[in-house]
C-alpha cells in the first residue's frame, strides 16, 4: 500500500472513531417536553412530548437538546425541561444541583477582556484549565497599545479561589511570562526587546449565568529588563469568562 493511501485510511478510521457516537435513547421522565423549532426560547413551540415517550438525544447547543421522538418529529428542548429525564436512574435532582455538577465537570474555560496596562489600552484573550474548584491555571495572550510602544504579553498563571462557595468569589493570581516591546517606528533608537516578567494579582469573579461570569482583575507586573532598573507595571482589566 502506498503511503498516501495509508494516511487516508488512518484518517478515515479516525473520523469513524470520532463520529461513531452511541445513540442516546431515553424515556421522558418529566411531565412533558416542549419542542421548539430552534435552540432558543424565542423560537416557536410546535410539538409537545409526553411523559413516557422515548426520545433520542441528537445534539446539544448551549442549554438546548435536539431530540427525535418515536414518530420522527425533531425539535429542540431546553435542559430545564429534561432535568428528571437526564438525572441518573431513580434519582431526583434539582436544577441547582445539576448545574453545580455540570459546572464541576467543566474543566476548560476561555475569556476575553479589556483594560489598562501602564497607561496603554489592553486587549486580552485567555484559556484556562480548572483543576479543582480552588485551583486553575491560565494562559493569557495580551496586546497593550500605547502612544509610544506596542507590547505583547504572554503569561502563564496559577489562580487560587479561596472561597469558591461565595457568590462573588475573590481569587489570587501568581505567574510569570514574557513581554515583547515594540516601540513606535517614529521614535529614535527603536529596538524591539523581550523581557521576562513576574506578576501577582487579585480578582473578583461574579457569575452571570450558568456557564459564564464577569471578571475584574488587577495585576502587578515586574519586568526584568536588561537596563539598570526593573520596571513595575500595573494592569487592570474587566472581561468575560466562559466555561465549556
Amino acid at each position: 500500500m502506498t503511503k498516501p493511501i495509508a494516511y487516508i485510511m488512518v484518517l478515515l478510521s479516525l473520523t469513524q472513531f470520532v463520529c461513531a457516537k452511541e445513540e442516546q435513547r431515553v424515556q421522558v421522565a418529566d411531565p412533558y417536553i416542549d419542542l421548539h423549532t430552534g435552540p432558543g426560547k424565542g423560537y416557536p413551540k410546535f410539538y409537545v412530548g409526553e411523559k413516557g415517550d422515548w426520545i433520542v438525544l441528537l445534539k446539544r447547543r448551549t442549554t438546548w437538546f435536539k431530540v427525535r421522538l418515536n414518530n420522527d418529529v425533531e425539535g429542540w428542548v431546553e435542559e430545564d425541561q429534561l432535568t428528571a429525564t437526564l438525572a441518573p436512574s431513580g434519582e431526583r435532582l434539582d436544577i441547582k444541583k445539576l448545574d453545580a455538577e455540570s459546572l464541576a465537570d467543566r474543566h476548560w474555560a476561555i475569556g476575553i477582556s479589556g483594560g489598562d496596562f501602564g497607561g496603554a489600552d489592553l486587549v486580552s484573550l485567555h484559556i484556562a484549565y480548572v483543576f479543582t474548584e480552588n485551583i486553575s491555571t491560565e494562559l493569557t495572550l495580551s496586546q497593550a497599545l500605547g502612544t509610544f510602544s506596542n507590547n505583547y504579553l504572554y503569561d502563564l498563571s496559577v489562580l487560587h479561589k479561596a472561597f469558591p462557595e461565595w457568590r462573588v468569589s475573590p481569587y489570587f493570581v501568581l505567574g510569570g511570562g514574557q513581554i515583547n516591546t515594540d516601540p513606535d517606528a517614529t521614535l529614535v533608537e527603536t529596538e524591539d526587546r523581550t523581557d521576562d516578567t513576574f506578576h501577582v494579582g487579585v480578582g473578583l469573579e461574579l457569575p452571570m449565568a450558568r456557564r459564564f461570569s464577569l471578571r475584574l482583575e488587577y495585576r502587578n507586573y515586574l519586568a526584568l529588563t536588561s537596563r539598570d532598573d526593573d520596571e513595575e507595571i500595573e494592569q487592570w482589566k474587566l472581561g468575560l469568562h466562559a466555561y465549556f
Binding site: 457516537k21 435513547r25 424515556q27 445534539k59 447547543r61
Partner: peptide
Amino acid sequence: DLERQEIDIDAIDSED
C-alpha cells in the same frame, strides 16, 4: 417497570 437508561450526556454531540 419504568426502565431507565444511563445517559452519557458527554457522548451527545455539542455544537457550541
